[in-house]
Design a protein around this nucleic acid. Structure first.
Lengths: 190, 190
DNA sequence: AAGTTCTTGTAGCACTTGCTACATTCAGTT
DNA sequence: AACTGAATGTAGCAAGTGCTACAAGAACTT
């Protein structure tokens, strides 16, 4: 029986994925060093050693997570563009319901809250994630759209509102609003 | 010099306003008993005595805050209805920028985040506050609107998206989206 | 082989957390 | 005046917080 792992030296890069997994599941606000370390297979001692202090850890972690989110969005880019704004909107709404994005969505509101409170690192991550989403929307605007730039921003605004209402138990309200906007069929906003 | 206050007996009702003030300023997630008690002029011992445990305290506090928010919205009801949806939207957008509502807005994202995580008491407060806002919107829909019910929901969805984008540093994105929607003049979404 | 630097483990410190045990004071009732 | 129950103060506990001191091993350089 050979020794399976000689010495799995750790670094920020090897730590960050495990830390991110823990945070996506258990939240960011209540995360303290010892549980984080346990989830990553280390000790609080080493987290401080590698990141300096907790604030830097959170900052790096948020940056890493927003990177993961960006690549997740990239992978979800369809090969053909939707034909209408309605279809573009429905597509990203469906994406947000996929199980892969759901944990991001739960964490997202924590990031927004931290951003609103001015917690260090949160605002940058929030800004980056929204920018990415906006890029995604622009790439999804139908060809020949009269105002793709403005349209993407409009759809993004409406999407964020829809997601938020869904989070606080007002999915039905959002659905009826989308219906009235003419942007959605009767299954949108669930 | 008479003794100014003989004995200011405390109860949940006298405590809650001071607790709410502290939470609106410093946030809800990081609030612990001793700072809360200090802000209310008591001891952690008495907070537990009056509320039983911290979870109940937070629950009662959120309920109280959503009540305060509701009366704040009531007071902001104009005497005349707006003539157009644009005007209705601009009116509530201006309201959200008023200094009185700003602390609620910052706390709001914390409530949404707690609701998404399933923290006890958060979902109820979030649901109540959105319902109140929806009522407000319905009362503000212009007379003769072809679909006031759906319109109010549409405006609410768009507003929440606009507020969120503004919180994370994308006010400009929201403004351009609103412009493209035809719902706003060029000062909206700031 | 010796020396130097990078990485890790063990203990622990000062502080905060929610909450409790115990005793005391106060208000109202009889 | 005596009793009763509600309201409050003091002290503390077990657990958890971020972080550090110290030392030891591991690895790389000369």
């Amino acid at each position: 029986m050979p020794p399976p792992e000689p010495k799995p030296r750790m670094s920020r890069e090897t730590l960050l994925p495990k830390l991110a997994a823990h945070v996506l599941e258990h939240g960011l606000g209540g995360a303290s060093l010892r549980p984080l370390a346990k989830a990553a297979g280390t000790s609080d001692r080493m987290l401080i050693y590698h990141f300096g202090d907790k604030e830097t850890l959170v900052r790096d972690l948020l940056e890493y997570i927003s990177g993961v989110y960006a690549t997740a969005l990239d992978m979800a880019l369809g090969d053909r563009r939707p034909a209408t704004r309605q279809e573009a909107f429905a597509r990203i709404l469906a994406l947000g319901r996929g199980p892969g994005i759901q944990p991001f969505l739960v964490l997202w509101w924590e990031i927004v809250a931290g951003s609103a409170r001015g917690l260090p690192g949160y605002a940058d991550a929030a800004e980056a994630m929204i920018t990415k989403q906006l890029d995604w929307f622009e790439a999804q605007m139908p060809e020949g759209d009269p105002d793709p730039k403005g349209g993407a921003r409009y759809l993004l605004t409406l999407l964020e509102g829809t997601l938020m209402l869904g989070t606080v138990g007002h999915a039905r309200t959002a659905r009826e609003g989308l219906l009235a906007s003419g942007l959605a069929g009767d299954r949108a906003g669930d």
